[in-house]
Simulated assay, not measured.
Amino acid sequence: MSVNVLFSAHADRWPQYRDLLTSAIITTGVDFNLATDFDPAEVDYVVYAPNSGLRDFAPFARLKAVLSLWAGVESIVGNPTLTVPLARMVDHGLQQGMTEWVTGHVLRHHLGMDRHITGQDGIWRTDVPPLAPSRTVCILGLGELGQAAGKALASLGFNVTGWSRTPKSIPEVTCFDGASGLQTALEGAEILVLLLPDTPATTNILDAKTLAKLPRGAVIINPGRGPLIDDDALLAALGSGHVGHATLDVFRTEPLPPDHPYWSHKRVTVTPHIASETRPETAVLAIAENIRRGEAGEPFLHLVDRTLGY
C-alpha cells in the first residue's frame, strides 16, 4: 500500500519542494503519494514547518512521524496532540550555511574589519590583529551545527573551546560541560558563539551574571535563538564596554521591531535571521531518508528528545 506524505508548510514553499521531494522519495523505492491536502486519517508522514498553521495532530490516526523542515522545534515540541516521533532538520545544507556565517563573522571580529570598512577617514591605521592560534573562540552548544562550526574554526587555527549541557568529546575542540564548565568556558571566550536550542534550561543563559564572566571587550555572536540572551543585560554590558560588540541574527520578536535599541546601537550588528536557512535541495534528502527508515522499520534520524526539548 502506498504511504501518504502530507506537505504542511507555508504555501510559497510547495513549488520549491514538490519536484525535489518527489524525486528524492522515488530514489528510496518507497511507494508514495505526496500532496498538500489529504484526509488526516490517511496520512502516514507529515513534512512540517511550524509556521504552516497545523497545530492539531489528533485526527492523524495512522501517522508514523512528523518530519520538521526546521532545526528549531521549540514551538511544536510541547504540543500535546503530537504523540508520534518528531524529527528535526539536520542536513548538510544547514551545517554548511551555519558554518559559513559563523566563520565569516568570527573572522570579521578577529581581524577587526569594521575599523577599515567604516573608518575611511584618512587615518592610516597600522594595528595588526593576532594570528588565529592566539584567539580563543568559544561555542555554546555542541550539537551538529556547533560541532561543524567548531571544526571549521579549528581548521583555521583558532583555539576553539565549547560547552554543552552533557559531556562531549571533539578532537578539535576543548570541551566543557555543566555549571562549572560553563564558567570556565566563558572566562576564556574572546569571541563567543551561541548555538544552543531554545529550552527552559537555556533561556537567558547569557544574563548579567554570566556576561560578567566574559573577558572585557569580548564579542558575542548569536545565530542560535533569541531567548538565549537577556537583552537588557546585554545592552548594559555593551554600554559599559564589558562586551565589545554583539552580532545578532535571532531575536525574541521577529522581525525585530524598528524601535528596538539594537538597531541604533553602535556596538550591535543586526542580521535578519539569515545565518542558516533550510535548503530544499539538501533538506529533501534528509526527509526522504527518514521516510525510507520508517517504512523499513529502522530508527529515525535526528529524533527530538521531548524531555530535553531538542
Rank of each mutant, 00 (worst) to 15 (best):
L248Q: 05
V193S: 06
D56C: 06
L192R: 02
D259L: 02
G29R: 02
L235G: 11
V304P: 07
P85F: 06
K209A: 15
G309N: 14
G93Q: 06
F251S: 04
I221S: 03
D37W: 10
R135N: 10
T253R: 15
G217A: 03
P197E: 07
W163E: 01
G29S: 04
T278C: 04
A233N: 11
I26Q: 15
E144F: 14
L235R: 09
V243Q: 03
F300I: 04
W263M: 07
P200T: 14
L82N: 05
T27N: 08
M98K: 00
G157F: 03
R279G: 06
T199L: 03
V5A: 09
T166H: 13
D44H: 09
D121P: 10
N159D: 15
L195T: 05
W124R: 13
I191E: 05
D56Y: 07
I191P: 00
A201M: 06
T28M: 06
H265S: 11
R13N: 15
L145R: 03
A218D: 00
G217L: 12
L238H: 03
I123M: 09
V47R: 01
G150K: 05
Q96E: 13
N51L: 13
N222L: 02
S8Y: 09
G244Q: 01
Q183L: 07
L186N: 06
V77M: 07
E42P: 04
G104Q: 05
G29C: 00
E298D: 13
I26C: 15
A65W: 07
D44G: 11
K213F: 12
K151R: 15
T161I: 13
G29T: 07
P299A: 07
N33F: 04
